[in-house]
Amino acid sequence: MAADVPASNTDGGSAFAKLARGLVPAVLTLAAALYSALVVCNAGESEATSAQWNRLAAEVQGARTATELIVFAPDWIDPIGRQYLGDQMDVEMASRMDSARYSGIWEVGLDGARARETRGLIADRTLEAGPLSLRHYVQAPAKVVFDFTSKWREGKSSGPMQGRPNLSLQEVDFAPHRCIKVVPRPDQTAIMTFEGIPLGSKIVGYVGLADIFTRRDIRDPGRLSLLVDGELRETVRAGIDDGWQRFEIATSPGWGTVEFRLTAVGAKALDRRICFAAEARE
């Protein structure tokens, strides 16, 4: 049996209105089809070319100082960005704790996108190349008095843990972070103590759980407690979805003992890979 759809528009109204009402669904569908075809046909058009990338790479190469960071936005263009500017980046930069210690940031953004590292900063230099924008930002770099991460060997470790603490490049929150990895025994606390180290006005750090597969299979959180000269100053819960969490405490400039206590919370918290990085800053 064939489609037997009755004619519409038997009610009142002008001929034009009737015509318009009858055509609306078809016109909308045609418009959707044409728009869809347009998007497909232009799909490659908005892509940045190698020449455009190379132009920005050359600009950065000529002007960047060693203490400046390179970032890309949105996040998903990062592999392309590293393909063209990766020779100016090292593993340390890509796996930084945060951007505070850099004196400047070079940001390559696609279609006006901005990186989280440049939030609140105003560009002093901009260059456009097709859909790409290169922006340069200047910031007052954080002065690091003591880098717990790079000087992790100066810390004394104690408490029940799997293996020993180590400095490694880990995936935390699907991003690269060079951090101190500690794996406390389930429901136990491992400790890293840094005795007699220089302190500035604050300690800034980050903590998170490494490795997506252990985050998937072990749902119990980790916890970091920070003590300065024996006094508990901060506790951060690191759950499986909490990402790379920042913590900051004020300190008195001088010398002191800093203790990081890492706990695998719960008896089922096997292989809970807690990663942290921290700096004492002026």
Partner: peptide
């Protein structure tokens, strides 16, 4: 699609 085509042609016929 068939319904929209019929609806459109019916409307054109009226106009």
């Amino acid at each position: 699609l068939v319904w929209m085509a019929k609806r459109a042609s019916d409307s054109i016929e009226l106009a």
